[in-house]
Computed example of a mutant assay.
Amino acid sequence: MKFIHTSDWHIGRQFHNVSLLEDQRHVLNQLLDYIKTEKVDAVIIAGDIYDRSIPPASAVDLLDQVLTAITMDLGVPVILIPGNHDSAQRVRFGSRQLKKSGLHIMGDLSAITEPVVIASSTGDVAFYGIPYTDPETVRNVWSEDVKSFDEAHTFLVNKISKATLANQANVLISHCFIDGAQTSDSERPLSIGGSDRVSYQPCEDFNYVALGHLHAPQQKGAPHIRYSGSILKYSFSEQHQKKGITLVELDKDGRASFTHLPLAPLRNMRVIEGEFATIIEQGKLDPHKQDYVLIRMTDRHAILEPMAKLREVYPNVLMLEKPGMLITGDQAMNREKLKRGELEMFSDFFEQVSGQAMSTDQQKAVKETIVSLIKQEQQA
């Protein structure tokens, strides 16, 4: 059995008000090429297909084109789960009818023990999917008293484990945050306060675990428990990450081997640091001047209209930082502040306005409000 594991397409995403749809189409065409050349038996998409719960029409059209090309033109089945950026109800619309064409959308939490079984030359493989969910939803669907993301995920994985058959290979697909894995700035937190982490240990007995949510390609806990990573760089913190997809092969004994297949972006995402004049001169000769760029100027004197001049050589400058111009304050500290979550930022705002820190009860009320707003956005 040979299949491709991919995730975190985020179709329809904008970066600093620039649409990345053309960039996404470019790498998804490479995915189609890999499917042809590797002659895979299936394609797995582990969540965050869209970038938001109500995607623009252009994003829906691109996804329709790609899935049609895979399932209809190439005749390869696709198995996908919704992620935290997707609306599970919208993504799984028509899922029962779409099965007939080879598109398997595993978005129903109550049906997680029902696998998609695909035959291959090395035997049948059962694919089980856990769409993104939270403890409250698990309590409502399964009437199980789980309080944390870890308890909820462990319960679901154990439920699936009891349904697996010993005489076939079993693959788990999940959109979650394995504790200790490497994060990126472009990922939306699953909960407030770091309680979204889950344990890898319940997943160890599966032949392969295809994970989504984190954007850096990586394994966690065991070699066969893997994040494929996102198909593009979605923040400047990802500039050194090697984006791609994961080719997985299961032998007749269910042992998995993995190969990272790189995806070459239409425009890379880079951070360029130095003095203004030096950056301008190197930009004139840069063969990749169309890349998305963050410029970090080290000059200590004022420069008239630097962004306009920089865009003459780097048309896609999206951010400009001038740490050398700061008389007081710490640029790195400010950057760290921007990375913090909604609760921490509101706490800072409250303290600046009122002159005192929020009480425990106030923090609890604000946290509940933020969680409620995030859930409303996901379900919208």
Rank of each mutant, 00 (worst) to 15 (best):
Ala216Asp: 03
Ser186Met: 12
Gln219Gly: 14
Asn158Trp: 05
Asn167His: 13
Ser191Ile: 02
Val117Pro: 00
Pro131Glu: 02
Gly194Ile: 15
His153Phe: 10
Pro131Gln: 03
Ala222Tyr: 06
Ala181Trp: 11
Pro131His: 01
Ser186Tyr: 07
Thr113Leu: 01
Tyr132Leu: 11
Ala222Arg: 12
Phe206Ser: 02
His215Trp: 00
Cys176Gln: 12
Ile118Trp: 14
Leu214Thr: 12
Val209Pro: 03
Tyr128Ser: 05
Val171Ser: 02
Glu151Asn: 08
Leu156Gln: 05
Ala152Asp: 05
Pro217Trp: 04
Pro217His: 10
Leu165Met: 09
Gln201Trp: 11
Ser186Trp: 07
Phe127Glu: 00
Ser195Trp: 05
Pro217Ala: 10
Ser148Asn: 06
Lys159Trp: 06
Ile225Thr: 08
Ser228Tyr: 02
His215Ile: 03
Ala152Ile: 01
Gly221Cys: 09
Pro202Glu: 12
Thr113Glu: 06
Asp205Ile: 12
Ala181Gly: 15
Ile160Val: 15
Gln168Trp: 03
Pro223Ile: 12
Glu136Asn: 09
Ala216Thr: 14
Asp196Gly: 08
Ala126Asn: 08
Pro131Tyr: 05
Val138Ile: 13
Ala222Ser: 13
Glu151Ile: 00
Trp142Tyr: 14
Glu144Gln: 10
Asp145Gln: 15
Phe149His: 15
Pro135Ile: 09
Asp150Tyr: 08
Glu144Tyr: 06
Ala119Tyr: 08
Phe177Arg: 04
Pro189Cys: 10
Arg188Asp: 08
Ile173Gln: 00
Gln219Thr: 15
Thr113Asp: 15
Thr133Glu: 09
Thr164Asp: 00
Asp124Gln: 06
Ala222Pro: 04
Ile130Cys: 12
Lys147Val: 11
His215Met: 04
Ile118Arg: 11
Ser186Lys: 03
Val157Lys: 00
Asn167Met: 05
His153Thr: 14
Gly221Ile: 03
Ala126Trp: 00
Asp124Trp: 01
Gly194Tyr: 07
Ser230Lys: 06
